[in-house]
């Protein structure tokens, strides 16, 4: 994996994701498109880095859980929904689009991985590599 230089790509090209809510906590489940990329996600998508990515969008801590059987990671973003549910004033009061907010995150991958996944996750009419 270290045979070539690391390239930063958006997580969008490596994984798909779904998010939801439990009270004031948003969860984001991240699923690798290719099983072989799961170890990269485990290595790169640490709770600390995800917390840093979201910045002031997540007031509380970020927890991470691993589901190697599904090649997935689950993140709990505490105090992310302005009180959540009916209390929240946010457009996204139920955390439905925290998924794509996380898929914006740029992560370092070997160049051959970047070549393999290039353009994935974007509608073919709009495919560009932007974060």
């Amino acid at each position: 994996m270290t045979s070539t230089m690391a390239v930063a790509v958006p997580l969008l090209e490596l994984a798909h994701a779904r998010s939801g809510d439990k009270g004031d906590t948003a969860n984001v489940g991240v699923v690798a498109y290719d099983e072989e990329d799961y170890p990269l996600l485990v290595e790169q998508l640490t709770a600390e880095r995800v917390k840093e990515h979201f910045g002031d969008l997540v007031i509380g801590p970020v927890e991470r859980f691993e589901l190697p059987n599904l090649h997935a990671l689950n993140f709990l973003l505490h105090e992310a929904l302005d009180g959540g549910g009916t209390v929240s004033l946010m457009t996204d009061a139920q955390g439905k689009v925290f998924s794509t907010a996380l898929l914006r995150m740029r992560i370092a991958v070997p160049a051959e991985v970047a070549d393999r996944v290039r353009g994935r996750g974007r509608h073919p009419g709009t495919a560009t590599r932007t974060g």
Binding site: G20, N27, G29, F65, L67, P68, N69, L70, H71, L76
Partner: peptide, 28 residues
Amino acid sequence: KEQLVYEMGDPTSYVTPDVTADFTTIQL
């Protein structure tokens, strides 16, 4: 898979009134 991780907490301990399920044991 995308639905399985929806509104997930600790996947090893999915608590219900009748059983506590471990979603990391799912073979799909």
